[in-house]
Design a protein around this nucleic acid. Structure first.
Lengths: 98, 98
DNA sequence: TCGTTGCATCAGCGCGTGCTGACATCACCG
DNA sequence: CGGTGATGTCAGCACGCGCTGATGCAACGA
């Protein structure tokens, strides 16, 4: 669970990409029309998502299909679930000020 | 699940604050010594976390205690769990190019 | 009551980062 | 083979945003 992964997923445009890829595999041309962003813009964002392992690319002729990597999303989900669980226990603990 | 919430939690300093608050309630003076950040810096970050409902403040005399709101973290966890779940199904769906 | 301490707020600065546009590359099709 | 379209890369710019330092304020203690 790196900060980098969380930051990658927290960007609005990239979050939108992840939402779209959660429904079906898409190539960049689909993402262009679905998001309204330019292709170079999307290409940059997709590189970030690839860099943190959130998506993987599958070249298919002229096109490039992208799909999510569910395990990575599950790691993030488990991270926040663990925090939430510990946070419940922490509600009854209060460190004294001196 | 707003982008704002995700962005708030994805910042490294704020993520550190959340980690610390997942163990016990702390006042700002504790966070100052635990993180090494300045109090005004922390105050700014805590305002952001309050703004998205991730933490709540409890004034106690001169001090201000902060605690996490586990429900919010659970919402985030569930959000990513849902994405992961849908992403698994999406692996067998591929939208054709044209 | 006055000084101290913990915390919040704000303006200003500087850096990180997202967006753009131009270019390169590669695959397909005529 | 040339043309076209899909994608990736990069430099440059602009804006957002985190950090800082000064200030204000409220609560406690001497």
């Amino acid at each position: 669970m790196t900060d980098e992964l969380l930051r990658a997923l927290a960007d609005p445009t990239r979050a939108r990409i992840v939402e779209l890829l959660a429904a079906e595999q898409l190539c960049v041309c689909h993402l262009v029309e679905l998001t309204g962003a330019t292709s170079s813009n999307l290409s940059n964002h997709l590189r970030v998502l690839r860099g943190v392992g959130a998506v993987e690319a599958e070249p298919a002729g002229r096109f490039t299909y992208y799909r999510l990597r569910p395990e990575v999303l599950e790691v993030v989900s488990a991270h926040y679930a663990g925090l939430a669980s510990r946070a419940r226990l922490a509600l009854v603990v209060k460190r004294p000020c001196d």
